[in-house]
């Protein structure tokens, strides 16, 4: 479990992370979502003790990262797949990392096999494709068989096959009872992977909860109904639910589709369409973070009228 409490980090004038409080539970994949520049990577560095917070704390299973003995055995992380010496072989990269925490070379070969890089272990990393680098990063995170795993944008630049592989891996890691904390600025990817969500914007917490609640809370639900017998349906719905009419269709809220179908049947109204509208995740996310985008497109547009003024 990862617990952050009122975590704050400033770089000069900018506050990258602002009183951020959240929890990532064990046995779940927690998606860490936010627009570019929202403070995701900074938060990850704070969790790992690489940066020192100006205020607040973050604990891993109740202990601050810097207090962990042989931390790789508790927390595995891939913050950036390019954090390695390009002239060193993949296996040697893992060997030195393993040796820091007294992890035997046997484990190095195990994780290489796990990510399918055994055959290129001796090849220098500069010859690795992006996907192979990503796999090596995941192998490094798995070295100490840790209870807690952090991945920063693990699918960035991967082909669909690679994405599917990572998604599957993250889910199986969580299924084994581990805490899996994955950042992304791509919501659809998260939707297929994460059960829990932490959404931040401009360093502040916007949402914490389950993925399902996130969608429910932030989207307008309703049922779209089309019928040739508008009068009958209108009479049946009045007093039962709120509804609006547009383009020859009813948009009903406050009743689910089962009940509406029943009402329509009892009223003798033939239905041509009865479809629940669920808000898309993308829409929910955009709604939430609209206020919190660091470099909003609107800001760029506002520069345009100045040329019109000149006309």
């Amino acid at each position: 479990m990862i617990e952050a409490t009122a975590l704050t980090k400033r770089y000069g004038e900018t506050t990258a992370v602002n009183e951020l409080t959240f929890t990532a539970r064990s046995g779940r994949v927690t998606g860490f979502l936010g627009p570019n520049g929202a403070g995701k990577s900074t938060t990850m560095r704070l969790i790992l003790g690489l940066d020192t917070p100006d205020a607040g704390t973050v604990h891993i299973d109740g202990v601050a990262y810097r207090q962990l003995k042989d931390p790789l055995r508790t927390v595995g992380a891939m913050l950036d797949a390019t954090w390695r010496h390009p002239g060193r072989g993949g296996r040697d990269h893992l060997r030195w990392l393993a040796a820091t925490n007294g992890i035997p070379d046997k484990r190095v070969d195990e994780v290489l096999a796990l990510v399918g890089l055994t055959s290129v272990g001796k090849t220098r990393v500069l010859q690795y494709s992006l996907g192979m680098q990503q796999r090596l990063g995941i192998a490094a995170a798995m070295l100490g068989d840790p209870r807690v795993l952090l991945f920063d944008e693990p699918v960035n630049g991967l082909d669909p096959e690679g994405m599917a592989w990572i998604r599957q891996l993250l889910n199986s890691l969580a299924a084994e009872g581990r805490t899996v904390f994955v950042s992304s600025h791509l919501l659809p990817e998260m939707a297929q992977t994460a059960q829990d969500l932490v959404v931040i914007g401009r360093g502040r917490l916007i949402y914490q909860g389950t993925m399902d609640d996130f969608v429910a809370r932030t989207s307008e639900h309703g049922v779209r109904v089309r019928t040739p017998h508008a009068d009958e349906l209108r009479a049946a719905l009045t007093g039962q639910a709120e509804f609006t009419e547009a383009d020859g269709a009813f948009l009903v809220s406050g009743l689910d589709s089962d009940r509406i179908g029943r009402l329509a049947f009892d009223a003798g109204a033939t239905l041509h369409e009865l479809s629940p509208i669920t808000g898309t995740l993308e829409q929910a996310y955009l709604d939430l973070t609209r206020e919190a985008v660091e470099f909003p497109a609107a800001a760029m547009q506002s520069a345009v009228p100045s040329s019109e003024v000149a006309k």
């Binding site: 790992l48 003790g49 690489l50 990262y65 810097r66 962990l68 931390p71 790789l72 992380a77 913050l79 950036d80 390019t82 954090w83 390695r84 010496h85 390009p86 990392l97 820091t100 925490n101 490094a140």
Partner: peptide, 14 residues
């Protein structure tokens, strides 16, 4: 240069 110092500090936080 290659940020392995970060990985090192991650493994040896002191």
């Amino acid at each position: 240069r290659f940020n392995t110092i970060r990985t090192t500090f991650q493994a040896v936080p002191h």
